[in-house]
């Protein structure tokens, strides 16, 4: 009994620590109203299941310990044994309680689902998320084509305002899952899906592809950056600009390296002749905090490793290796780090 008590205390302690830690990617740490409702439903179902579990264990222990027949003797078979009626009542009421409990959970799930989907607002920010193997293309569409912002793996949203997220896929099925903010939404090729999303706590939250999509599925992450409305519009304004023309010779040389090598076959830098849409848009690469779909920090060293030998970091990725000369690589890094 003492051991069971210890075990119970340990379980509760683990649960509490899971509930209170400030995780960057956790459904237990909701940062918006939708994740909050999903978390509420989780705890309701958890505690119901906990009570059911305890009751079942108590009943099981009781049934296995009481009225144990210790002698070998024939058990008489009776037509109407005493206690049969009482047992029947117990079984029927247990069944009724089970059915009622399951139906209440069903009703609560439906109500929670309605509330999670029931967020709207006028003139929301619209974000198009397109899944690629294995990165996320994030577009802020605008009726004026030159005002449209295209970035990758980072979804910036204003705090406290519902935004519309449109989802699509360029190749296979992916799933957009920021656990701190919302549930999973599948990205289907050839099919536009849409949902509302709201973040109340400013911060950076990690999301993850939640539908197996190939070799680098496990490293297909993204970030949701929630910032104040002012910061958000400043960010959007900055992202709308084309890349600046390089000023110093090193950066200028880096631009030539970029345009003269394989980079130009897949990437876009607005303001230069690079315009392919196979890989992430790099116009403002240096403004992102991570590279390679939330796999590496956006530092000079990580960038160099990723450019030269991506297949040892993410095998199967569609980024090709680039065996550059050291001075070419240094110039290229200087250029890429100037893309604020």
């Amino acid at each position: 009994m003492k051991r069971a008590a210890q075990l119970g205390c340990a379980t509760v302690a683990i649960m509490l620590s899971a509930a209170c830690c400030q995780a960057q990617q956790s459904a237990m740490n909701p940062a918006g109203p939708q994740a909050g409702k999903i978390e509420w439903l989780f705890w309701v179902i958890f505690w119901i299941a906990f009570v059911v579990y305890v009751l079942v264990i108590i009943a099981f222990t009781r049934a296995s310990t009481r009225n144990r027949v210790r002698e070998e003797r024939p058990v008489p078979v009776l037509e109407n044994p005493p206690g049969e009626r009482g047992a029947a009542i117990a079984v029927h009421s247990a069944l009724a309680i089970t059915v009622i409990t399951l139906f209440s959970i069903l009703v609560m799930s439906i109500i929670t689902g309605e509330k999670v989907e029931g967020i709207t607002s006028k003139n929301p920010v619209t974000i198009q998320v397109t899944g690629h193997q294995w990165w996320w293309e994030v577009t802020y569409p605008n009726l004026q084509a030159d005002q449209t912002v295209i970035t990758a793996n980072e979804v910036h949203v204003p705090v406290g305002k519902p935004v519309v997220v449109l989802t699509n896929s360029a190749d296979v099925i992916h799933s957009f899952w920021p656990p701190n903010i919302h549930g999973k939404h599948d990205l289907l090729p050839g099919y536009q899906n849409a949902f509302w999303m709201q973040v109340d706590q400013p911060g950076i939250y990690r999301g993850q592809c939640a539908e197996f999509c190939g070799y680098q599925h496990a490293h297909m992450g993204f970030a949701i950056v929630a910032e104040s409305a002012d910061d958000f519009s400043k960010w959007l304004e900055q992202q709308r600009k084309a890349a600046e023309t390089p000023h110093d010779p090193e950066t200028s040389r880096g631009e030539q390296v970029f345009l003269g090598h394989a980079c130009v076959m897949c990437h876009t830098i607005r303001g230069t002749t690079a315009g392919s849409r196979m890989g992430p848009d790099l116009t403002h690469l240096a403004s992102r905090h991570m590279i390679a779909a939330e796999t590496l920090p956006n530092t000079r060293g990580a960038l160099a490793g990723w450019i030269v030998d991506p297949q040892s970091i993410k095998p199967g990725s569609q980024m090709a290796p680039n065996p550059l000369d050291p001075d070419e690589l240094n110039a290229l890094l200087a250029f890429l780090q100037s893309l604020q």
Binding site: G260, H261, A262, V264, M265, A320, P321, N322
Partner: peptide, 8 residues
């Protein structure tokens, strides 16, 4: 040439 790696 110089735009795609040889293995591609």
């Amino acid at each position: 040439r110089n735009r795609i790696p040889e293995y591609q």
